[in-house]
Design a protein around this nucleic acid. Structure first.
Lengths: 152, 152
DNA sequence: CGAAATTCAATCGCGTGCGATTTAATCGTC
DNA sequence: GACGATTAAATCGCACGCGATTGAATTTCG
C-alpha cells in the first residue's frame, strides 16, 4: 500500500498527531485542579520542574531543556517572578545572558508539584513499566521528528 | 517504592506529561511548512480532517470529536469560513445548533492535507505497526486520564 | 399553557506558542 | 582597536485553549 492509499484511509481518530495533541490537552486538564492550588499553569509547572531540579539556570539552557523559545518564556518567567517563585538577574560576566534562580517560595512547592506528576502517571492506565516505555517512545518520536525537520 | 519516593526521583526528561507535551509541539512544528502551503494552522487542519471525512457536521458533534469547546472552535471556524473552506449555517429545525459544511475549496485540500499526516508518520521513526500501537496507546492513556478526571 | 431548567453557541479575558523583528552585548578577524 | 557577524533576550502580533459568563432557543414539568 503506497502513501496515497494510506492517506485515503486516514480518519481523525487514527492520526498519530491527534492522539498526541489530545493526550497533551488531557494531561494539562488533569493537572489543572492540582496546579490551581499551587497557582501555576501547566507550562509554568514545566519550568518549575527544571528549577526544582537545578535551582539555577540560564534562559538559553532553559529554552533548550523545555524546547520553547524566549518569546514564550520571557512573559512566563516574569509572571513567576511577580509571584515570587523565581528571581531573574543579568549575568555579570555576559550581560546578554539571563540567570534564573528559584526562590524559597518556589522551592516550597516542590513536593506538591512532583506529587502531581505521580498522580498523572497513576491515572494513565499504564503500569510503571508501561509509563516508562511510553515516556521513552514519545521522547524518541519527538527527537526523530525534530531531526527530520532539521534535515530539511 | 511509595509515591513520595518516586516523586523525589522525577526529572523533566522522565515526565510522561512532558514527553506528550513536547511531542505534540514537535508534531505541530513538523507540519507547519506543509500546512503553511495550504494556509492552515494545525488546529484548523484537525478540524478540516473531520470535515474531509464527514462533509457536514454540527458544532456540538465537532466539539466531541476534536475534544475542544465552542469558545475555541467558534473563532477558528470563522477563520475557515473567511478563507472560503467552510460554510456555517444555523440549523432550521433547532436554531441553537450550528451546521458546518465543507466547501469545494475545502475539499480541494484533502489530498495534500492527508498526505501531510502520512509524512509525519514516516518521520516518527516507528514502523507502521509501531505507529499504530503508539497511536492507540496514547488514545487509551488520554481516555483513561479523562475518565479519572471525570470521576473526581 | 407557561415558567424554570437545560442546551448550544458565542463572547470575553488571560496565558501560552511562535514567526518576525529589534536591541544590546560579545566575538572574530583583520 | 574597530567593525561586521553572531548571539541572547525581549517585543510585537496573531492564533489557539479554556474558565467564566451571556444570550438565545428548546425542553421539561407542574
Amino acid at each position: 500500500m503506497d502513501k496515497k492509499a494510506i492517506a485515503e484511509q486516514l480518519k481523525l481518530d487514527l492520526l498519530l498527531c491527534f492522539s498526541a495533541y489530545s493526550l497533551s490537552h488531557a494531561f494539562s486538564r488533569f493537572y489543572r485542579p492540582m496546579l490551581d492550588k499551587l497557582g501555576l499553569t501547566y507550562p509554568q509547572f514545566v519550568v518549575m520542574m527544571v528549577l526544582w531540579e537545578n535551582g539555577k539556570i540560564t534562559m538559553k539552557a532553559l529554552t533548550d531543556l523545555v524546547m520553547l523559545e524566549s518569546n514564550t518564556l520571557t512573559p512566563l518567567l516574569k509572571k513567576l517572578e511577580a509571584a515570587g517563585l523565581v528571581k531573574r538577574t543579568r549575568n555579570r560576566d555576559d550581560e546578554r545572558v539571563l540567570d534564573i534562580e528559584i526562590t524559597e517560595a518556589g522551592l516550597a512547592l516542590k513536593a506538591d508539584g512532583q506529587m502531581a506528576a505521580v498522580e498523572l502517571a497513576l491515572a494513565s492506565g499504564e503500569d510503571i513499566d508501561g509509563v516508562m516505555e511510553m515516556q521513552q517512545r514519545m521522547a524518541r518520536m519527538r527527537d526523530s521528528v525534530r531531526a527530520k525537520l532539521e534535515a530539511t
